[in-house]
Design a protein around this nucleic acid. Structure first.
Lengths: 247, 247
DNA sequence: CGTCTTTTTGACTACTGTCAAGCGCTGTGG
DNA sequence: CCACAGCGCTTGACAGTAGTCAAAAAGACG
């Protein structure tokens, strides 16, 4: 996804933004486009591992992930970490304001920075965008609910399989591709923090999935050999990934 | 909260709605009030255990919980159940459209039913309401993230304690009250489904909390004897409960 | 007062975590 | 082009938390 050398991809003009369709799930009018272009304040380029959003920073800004992966996390007093939302290009970061969890870049990444005040003005002027905004938040909600079900009621192998299916699907228009490479830059430690497992146990679960010839995962690349069977094994149903409705 | 005999409380006119402040976290203008009053279509009264929202029904309607408690849940193919959002009066139900999880009433309950089409029209006409709507969804998001952290990184006692703190706080303007009774209508089976534990293990965790004189829970009533100590024990930080920001 | 649900308790099993070590790929520097 | 350093991945042994199964006690309801 990104070497040490090359800088992260820099977003171009909003008008031509290639990730907007991913973000809004619908065509955007000229007037809306102008509003969006005016609202974007700056761009940030980040290295893998760097902080994308610090604690409290969400009070002032909202971000759109343009390229790369990132995740929100929470650290408990005893030091254990839980990864919440996993962000892919097009996702909104910091929608919860000051209460937003800190966000870290998985890979080199770039984000568009929107000031909260301007975003607010934009949404007030364009109600349809406000509704789209709400839909995006609702979709994030759906992803969280699914993961909650994973942590609550699936065993380690199923959790891992379900997450692989989800992340593959989100990179492939909602459908996990069969026998095609997709990016999978999360390390096993991070997978553990996302799934509520120890890194060692993630490794064992991964070994089980490999042994059953359900997937291949090497050098940050994932390939699902039999998504249907994997989905059955994990009790995974892609419905929750569906695009938000017209409201 | 409700006996077999008495019917659930029936909502009165929107104009006088006592739960609106809980729901929107802000004053509402006259024009907005009119829009809200026009948008509400019908009211539903429900008995404990009944379905509040069935699978797919969210495509057509959105609900506001007026009285009683409810929860969204998901059933895995093997029959295990995971409870997601727990709804208290003022909360929105069905914001994810057709992808919304089914919702069941914990106690007798009443809900205001909004048709999705009318809601859409209302939000288009009143951008500030659209923004408020997004904030409500974002808040639901915050609650889910917190529970995700619980299921991922807290043990049984901490999970249960954190949930008790949250539900007590949500009934008390965001602060868990000390030595005061609050409603706690969830059965141990339901607590287990919410926390990713077996009902038996919930019981054991509850016994531990009682033994340490941290809380009392009898006949659907909870009393926290030392919220601070409990919060420390559970690594619980109420920040995530904060009202949504002005965006 | 009898029935059904919910809560408790106990014994045993199983999944996952922890600790420890060894392996291997990647990138660095000679 | 090769040796070295580091981080990440694997594997094994053992401990601990939580699940399952079974059954009794305690409430709730009619």
């Amino acid at each position: 996804m990104a070497t040490r050398r090359a800088p992260p991809p820099r977003p171009g003009p909003c008008r031509l933004c290639p990730v907007r369709p991913l973000a809004l799930f619908r065509p955007v009018s000229e007037a809306e486009l102008d509003a969006i272009a005016t609202t974007r304040a700056t761009v940030r380029l980040l290295r893998a591992g760097e902080a994308v959003l610090r604690r409290g920073e969400g009070a002032d800004i909202v971000l759109t992930l343009f390229a790369g992966w990132a995740f929100a996390y929470r650290v408990l007093p005893d030091g254990r970490r839980q990864i919440g939302e996993i962000f892919l290009p097009g996702d909104l970061i910091g929608t919860r304001g000051a209460a937003s969890d800190p966000v870290e870049a998985v890979t080199d990444a770039s984000v568009c920075v929107l000031s909260r005040a301007r975003l607010r003005a934009m949404l007030d002027d364009h109600p349809a965008l406000a509704v789209s905004f709400a839909q995006l938040v609702a979709r994030a909600n759906a992803l969280l609910s699914e993961r909650l079900a994973s942590l609550g009621r699936r065993d380690a192998v199923q959790r891992l399989g379900a997450l692989m299916l989800e992340l593959a699907a989100r990179q492939n228009a909602g459908v996990p591709p069969k026998d095609e490479d997709v990016a999978m830059p999360l390390r096993q430690t991070q997978l553990g923090d996302a799934l509520g497992l120890s890194a060692e146990h993630v490794n064992r679960a991964l070994a089980a999935l490999r042994r059953d010839r359900l997937l291949t995962l090497r050098s940050r690349t994932l390939r699902l050999h039999d998504p249907e069977r994997l989905a059955r094994l994990c009790g995974w149903d892609p419905t929750y990934l569906a695009e938000p409705p017209a409201l």
